[in-house]
Design a protein around this nucleic acid. Sequence first.
DNA 1: CACCATACGGAGGGATGCCTCCGTTTGCAA
DNA 2: TTGCAAACGGAGGCATCCCTCCGTATGGTG
Lengths: 222, 222
Amino acid sequence: MTNADGPASGVGATTPGGGASGRGATTPGGGASGEAPSDVFARRPKRADARRNYEKLLTAAREAFAEAGVSASLEDIARRAGVGIGTLYRHFPTRQDLFESVYIDEVEALCRTADDLAGQPPWDALAGWLRRFVTYTATKRAIAEALNHDSPVFATCRKAIDAAGQPLLSRAQKSGDARPDASFDDVLRLVGGVTMYPFADPAQLERVLTMALDGIRERPEG
Amino acid sequence: MTNADGPASGVGATTPGGGASGRGATTPGGGASGEAPSDVFARRPKRADARRNYEKLLTAAREAFAEAGVSASLEDIARRAGVGIGTLYRHFPTRQDLFESVYIDEVEALCRTADDLAGQPPWDALAGWLRRFVTYTATKRAIAEALNHDSPVFATCRKAIDAAGQPLLSRAQKSGDARPDASFDDVLRLVGGVTMYPFADPAQLERVLTMALDGIRERPEG
DNA sequence: CACCATACGGAGGGATGCCTCCGTTTGCAA
DNA sequence: TTGCAAACGGAGGCATCCCTCCGTATGGTG
């Protein structure tokens, strides 16, 4: 797995001292109980009903952000999830927390697919992962501009994506399939941009994606 | 001074007395003015102070949208422009009007560059125009998601862009420079996506743009 | 079963934004 | 210079959202 280590489980639990929104309370820093964090990101609640509501909120938030963008009303999200507004705030003290949690879910799924593709030939592995990356950006697009890019969560996720995808690119470059003068970040920008606007026609997505991949591919001869 | 003109033309002149934001319709029957309107979009006010404020508002709006996104406060925009909120509403009865006006400005500039490039070799002309297109999308990005895609203004702009760029692509395809299996819309999506996120490093923008253009280019061998 | 820590729901105060309305100012033509 | 239509500014009513607070409900354990 890509996660090298896992210091405290709650990467983005609550904003540290300096931050605004002086809540706190939830997920107290002192909860050093002996749980084995399965990954860096885990921070699900433990009681059954709480966990259920947590999931419902996450789903509702994903939908709401996709539909209404980053300015979706939190009260509407609570309504969609069928819980009270208070419950939303307990789980996600700030709007940022909600963004981050939705985002983290996506990143985890994306990183997992890199492992699944490890056995493929270099170019196929890279192309396959980039295809998966496109669906990731489609979800991310809605909340990207509001994600706090200085947040430690964001940095951690970015590192996880790099760790998952960078090897695939390097391998394809070593084998001569991918052009050598492209950085990993270049590639992500090119491919990620493809979903800037939603596609009505899946066939078109396929065509555009093919063009993007051709742009990444090494040209046959000079 | 000496503004020698004032043809009351325009796609969406100010809403008539009643109130509802019924757009369009204008299309003055006669076009009795002696001047040939250089484009379909013009709808500037005629009195000097009004025109001045109109421009100030447009500039302020462009800035505000770029910074704060589509949900920028209208009152803040009026403040930036140094005019009262009432003035803003007189010129732009709805938020959509403001979006559209900013957008139209950009489209006009983009279309003009197509003419400038007409004399270039096929591929150079296409590539040059697509480079300009990138800067257009950078501005558009902020307001794109809020633009009413059903608006007649949007449709008109889209047509104008097609009319400006499509010939460049066709020419490059006929000359064998651009791949034949790419529609104009495909190309715009690929290139436009490049600016999904702002670039800190101009050199990187150049690299990614090169990759995108390579994806559009016909591959050397068969 | 009984207890209590944990979680829940939603009313309500405060803040902000949207948009209208109207008294005042100003450009410009006679 | 004068008169008036056009444009201006901003107060204020209404709507919405954010977030807190606290009484109530419930899961899980002894």
